[in-house]
Write a protein that binds this DNA or RNA. Structure first.
Lengths: 189, 189
DNA sequence: TTGATTTATTAACATTTGTTAACGGGTATT
DNA sequence: AATACCCGTTAACAAATGTTAATAAATCAA
């Protein structure tokens, strides 16, 4: 993990219309993180108040089903997207790199008043939550579909990129079916 | 539909720490709406920029599965909760009263700058989205569980009120199973 | 209350989906 | 190139869930 400093400036600028002051603050309080394929970035167990912005790569978020002990994938994120750990134990996820990844990590504990006193950062957070709300609404709709075939069809339509980049057995978990069954669905498609 | 005026004041006050000015604005630009059981409040087809705050009663939100033509329930809302129609066609829902309901309806088109210039209303919206995000996260987790039994167990744990108030066949749709199967699950439980 | 309508339960059967195991193609490591 | 490992496919079978229909229970309207 290295300090990001001005390296991150053009990247943050493209991300959102932050004020110059906010970008300064973000650069000063962020670091640069590289992880290998398959490495875990955050686990359900640990908490830190960091925003991980993906510069490069692909990540899956998942939780452990207490009944079966299996991992269940919640979603995937890639370039220009971000994630952070929830505070509620109930909602915590783990994040694993499915490709070699590069992140800018904004340390909110260092960034101090970023959340409180800077309008453009607040707007960014509001936009982030709103966008994520909409995506979740869409995922909910997908998971509500009663047949595996219909869920797959919706994935294909709404998230075609994932079909290319995400290993099939991870998509299967995401779609609430087994890898064997996903293979069947694709065949009969 | 009647004008709400000062009738709504104590209700709005309890809902969130709005400024006096915002409460005035909300009262002036809101109406009071009563609907019978089973009546539809909003349909997927129509759009209006209103916030429906539930004073009394219970509502289900649902969408039509284009494949089967069936209604699929997304969630339920009751006293002190609110809902509004999404702008994205993809995410629109219909809302139906499962009990006789009373709403305060805030007409954002009339309320003018409520969303733009009033901090306490903006905070309210942000809190609303954040809370809803968390609930959706939880629902997603529930729908991701691979067995009907596990989904029902989680509903029982996390939303015990719904078990009391929501008709079983509507819970079944919400849990992504048939009413017949829900009955089986409950029996073997 | 009565009768009519809606909802919940149960059973038998059909379909979907999960499970296990074997096979084969790819990829990485040596 | 050889080996090992991971992943996707396929098949046979098992388990879960959907479907239909009959019945019972609950709710609603008259």
């Amino acid at each position: 993990m290295q300090n990001a400093h001005n390296d991150a400036r053009p990247f943050f600028s493209k991300l959102f219309s932050f004020s110059e002051e906010v970008i300064d603050l973000m650069c000063v309080s962020s670091s640069f993180l590289k992880v290998n394929k398959d490495e875990t970035v955050i686990t359900e167990a640990t908490f830190n108040p960091n925003v991980y912005v993906i510069k490069k790569g692909l990540v899956r978020s998942y939780f452990i089903d207490e009944v079966s002990g299996n991992e269940i994938n919640k979603t995937f994120r890639s370039e220009q997207e971000y994630f952070m750990q929830c505070e509620e134990p109930e909602l915590k996820s783990s994040y694993q790199a499915l490709e070699p990844c590069e992140f800018y990590v904004i340390h909110l504990d260092i960034a101090g008043d970023l959340k409180k006193n800077h309008a453009s950062f607040q707007e960014f957070l509001y936009r982030t939550v709103s966008e994520d709300w909409r995506r979740k609404e869409l995922l909910n709709k997908m998971l509500s579909l009663p047949t595996a075939k219909a869920r797959y069809a919706m994935l294909e339509k709404k998230f075609p990129d994932w079909l290319q980049r995400v290993p099939q057995f991870h998509l299967a978990s995401f779609l609430n079916m087994t890898p064997v069954h996903l293979s069947r669905v694709r065949k009969s498609h």
